[in-house]
Design a protein around this nucleic acid. Structure first.
Ligand SMILES: [Mn+2]
Ligand SMILES: [Mn+2]
Ligand SMILES: [Mn+2]
Ligand SMILES: [Mn+2]
Lengths: 217, 217
DNA sequence: TAAAAAATTTAGACTAATCTAAAATATGGA
DNA sequence: TCCATATTTTAGATTAGTCTAAATTTTTTA
């Protein structure tokens, strides 16, 4: 099997290539808080195992084998996050670091049974889709709240920033997954947004928050 | 914190010293499937961290700090085994290897909530006691079935061999934790044992099996 | 299109954990 | 008590993963 470090690199490359397609050494180094030279060493190893496509100086992408492993790890990460929130009553801002460890528990059988135990959830506590046991999943088309216009309405369905401070802020403002919102005003000066929650509660959020909140229309 | 290898050494020393008090380098090497020279290296490191008492050539014992860590790992191991059997419907012979990985998940909060989620179980699927969140537990006084005499009766409460083949054999014979048995005969020639289960089912087991089945009187 | 700057790789070193082979120490039987 | 044997430790390597510093390649820009 693969080492913990290898798994983390594959997962990282998977996430980065969602945006970019081809991923650079420096992007990986920044994302993993490591040095570019360490990344190069690992890329050689992953290329030897045919888990990535790699040519010197040209960046990397996952092979089908590498992608399969990455998706498997993401499945485990999100299922454990769901477990921690739904069964052990953690808050959505507390579970990521624990899931970072738990995603490396190797048993497939274990994760499939966990999936079944929880009723095959489709989304993790942050709105991210959970791949099924074949690695299949469809990501809903979500737009940053900042791209909506006045009077548009939609459902909060994901976040682009998974950090605790952001998630805690959202929780406090009741801006949680599943809530319906309607844009009431956009302040031109600073691009901040006024919006209405259910129960007619009015909220005012900054451009930065609006950028990191994902909405299904 | 401690590395995975360090945690495994501490747990190993804890289990070995239950029998012996002081534990030898070779005992540890045999138990961990490693070489005595590797053990010596690790013992120096653990002694530097004041987790074991170690003097060259004299064997080791755990310090209070080392014992606390070891008991914490054993708590995690047994709680995860309980979870796998009670919530995910694994058989008692399937869970040990998975728990070997899960016992290294670091969060204390996680394990305490898991404990609560399951209703603070007192014993794992193999009858071993589960330490509470302060590391306290009492091990019942159990005797190998082989030490009982004819007509004595008792309750199956633990096993000394945790291997899959043994556990599967017990399951097939319905010799599982909680069952009441009565000795009906002891064959002098090979020290094999005849016994009666509930529902008057008669079973005949070898001396070896009798040695590895633990009974509460 | 040739520097200059940025990105990436290589070279050489370090730590943790392991190994084999050799040396040191302890132990038990004559 | 002494020596043969068993146990344990030391010495010297190895592998995975990381680092810094230097060299190389690519990209930008003037
Ligand atoms: Mn996460
Ligand atoms: Mn998540
Ligand atoms: Mn076990
Ligand atoms: Mn057990």
């Amino acid at each position: 099997m693969n080492t913990l470090a290898e798994e983390n690199y594959l997962k990282c490359i998977y996430h980065l290539s969602a945006d970019a397609g081809i991923v650079s050494t420096n992007q990986i180094a920044a994302s993993l808080n490591t040095k570019a030279s360490s990344v190069t060493d690992m890329l050689k190893k992953l290329a030897d195992k045919v888990l990535i496509n790699y040519t010197r100086y040209q960046g990397v992408s996952l092979t089908p084998a590498g992608e399969k492993i990455a998706v498997g790890i993401i499945r485990k990460h999100r299922l454990w996050e769901y477990f921690l929130v739904e069964k052990l009553n953690f808050k959505w801002d507390q579970v990521h670091d624990m899931a970072e460890e738990m995603e490396h528990i190797s048993s497939e059988e274990l994760i499939d049974r966990l999936d079944e135990f929880m009723g095959h959830p489709k989304h993790d506590p942050h709105g991210d889709p959970i791949p099924d046991c074949n690695g299949k999943f469809k990501s809903a088309e979500l737009k940053p709240l900042s791209t909506l216009t006045v009077n548009q309405c939609g459902v909060i369905s994901g976040v682009r920033d998974h950090s605790s401070p952001f998630l805690q802020y959202l929780e406090k403002q009741q801006l949680t997954i599943g809530k319906t919102i309607t844009i009431t005003d956009i302040i031109e000066y600073d691009h901040s947004v006024a919006l209405k929650l259910e129960a007619n509660k009015e909220i005012h959020i900054s451009r930065e928050v609006a950028n990191n909140l994902l909405i299904a229309l």
